[in-house]
């Protein structure tokens, strides 16, 4: 079965390059003709996830897999972990430092946004053990806009 896999290393606190993995994922999905609304959802989730790993984590990794029926985003890091996942899922809850808030982050909407925009969100985390966020998006037959395979 056709599957497209790509992975990126994320550097902790590297704000110059933060977001590039998400942009590259976005461009890739556009090229294979994924429906715009779905690309937008994946892009939002990818960016939130990537920024979280860059801001809070160490040795982050960002993987995407595209199958004929689903897209999986798998973002993990070896950072401080999330103490209380249920609490972290609340809108407006954030552990971002004052510095990050000044940069415009830390509105406490990251995880809730990811939950809203993905079809399924799984978080594995333990305090001090890092965090792994896996988001799934199902690809219905219509979500490739009948554009597949017509190479010019």
């Amino acid at each position: 079965m056709a599957a497209l896999k790509k992975s990126f290393q994320l550097k902790s606190r590297d704000f110059i390059h933060a977001g590039e993995a998400s942009i590259s994922v976005q461009n890739m999905l556009k090229q294979i003709g994924i429906e715009s609304a779905l690309i937008r959802r994946v892009a939002i989730c990818a960016y939130e996830g990537e920024m979280n790993a860059v801001m809070h984590g160490e040795n982050g990794s960002f993987r995407i897999e595209v199958n004929t029926d689903k897209i999986i985003l798998d973002i993990s890091d070896e950072g401080p972990g999330i103490e209380d996942i249920a609490k972290a899922m609340e809108k407006g809850f954030s552990t971002a430092s004052e510095e990050y808030r000044e940069m415009g982050f830390g509105a406490g909407m990251g995880l809730p946004n990811m939950e809203t925009h993905s079809d399924r969100l799984d978080i594995e985390s333990e305090k001090g053990q890092g965090t792994r966020v896996v988001m799934r998006f199902s690809l219905s037959p219509g979500s490739r806009e009948n554009k597949t395979g017509q190479s010019a």
Binding site: A2, I32, V66, R144, G149, Q150, S151, A152
Partner: peptide, 13 residues
């Protein structure tokens, strides 16, 4: 027109 020329997953790989 380039918008309509999507690649397949295999081509992307």
């Amino acid at each position: 027109p380039d918008q309509r020329r999507a690649l397949t997953i295999d081509q992307m790989q």
